[in-house]
Design a protein around this nucleic acid. Structure first.
Lengths: 176, 176
DNA sequence: GTCTATACTAAGATAGAC
DNA sequence: GTCTATCTTAGTATAGAC
């Protein structure tokens, strides 16, 4: 893909990518439309030419975030579930992965509860897709659900806790 | 304990109990001081006689919420870890347990990331106490950490997902 | 310690020029 | 489609009477 094609990103796409990053990092309430538009090098007024509301943006950004996280996590993941699990849990510690690669299922897990039905529906679809993907690595549905809960819980906790030693022990304990 | 002793609750305690319930249910941003004080049958102005800021209230309410959840979860929990796990996961479905009995570790898991250091410290202490309690049921630290991640992840997911069948399967899969 | 009233700030959303 | 300017609402926090 030539340089100019990659960089000729439309405004809406740019807004979505910036929003995905900010929302996953901080949640819905802590991110203003101002923040998103500044991050995309535009002003507030331009926002409503692309989205009908902040909730609309959140909903679309959630899909983008899920897509990008999936790309990152499943990259080089050809050795079955153990490999997936390792990649997923790496999110919890690796500071180089911080941009647009963290799993929105984990990081927005208690943010989504307060959102409108449409957003919750989108979140649920993303979660179901994640479980299906785990199943595709050779696990039963019940096994996949339990592993999903453990991985998501571990990564979500990793971001909430400040004690790095504890986080390390937690992620190691959830491995395998 | 006689009736009147139980009901002779001071204002500050009442505010804290109402706040604990509201914060655990909705998170920090979605709950206003107005909401808390209305719920405690008072007006905004009286708030600052008891707390220096909303963050101060949140911090203290977190401790109250943790205490109440612990009371509820460990009630009749004398048969080791399996019993604890069963009680904990029950939060995810049982609608009768909804008031001041849900675990703040799970329900505020992605809320806490945006809070100030003091609040995060309190959250971390509560989490460590939870892990210690699991260990006291006969598990190693690593086992306890993994089980904690699974239980917390499962309950947090239960509140975010709307598909009741799926939630049921998830909680069943995390049992045992 | 609790009330009413108010100052202050921030954020979502809209209008109209270019 | 993007800009500046503005409307409106809501929420934290403070002041002063009782």
């Amino acid at each position: 893909m030539p340089w100019d094609v990659k960089h000729k990103t439309k405004s809406k796409e740019k807004i979505l990518i910036c929003a995905a990053k900010l929302f996953v990092e901080k949640g819905f309430d802590a991110v203003g439309i101002n923040d998103v538009m500044k991050s995309a090098n535009m002003t507030r007024g331009a926002f409503y030419a692309h989205f009908k509301s902040k909730a609309d943006l959140y909903n679309q950004a959630l899909v983008v975030a899920a897509f990008e996280a999936r790309e990152s996590i499943t990259q080089g993941c050809d050795q079955g579930f153990a490999s997936l699990q390792h990649n997923y849990l790496k999110q919890g510690q690796d500071p180089s992965l911080k941009d647009n690669q963290q799993c929105p299922i984990a990081l927005l897990i208690s943010d989504i509860r307060q959102r409108e039905p449409l957003v919750r529906e989108t979140y649920e679809k993303v979660f179901k897709g994640f479980v299906k993907f785990i199943e595709s690595q050779g696990l039963t549905e019940a096994e996949a659900l339990k592993e999903a809960a453990t991985m998501i819980g571990a990564v979500a906790l990793s971001e909430s806790l400040t004690d790095k030693k504890l986080v390390e022990k937690l992620l190691a304990a959830c491995q395998g």
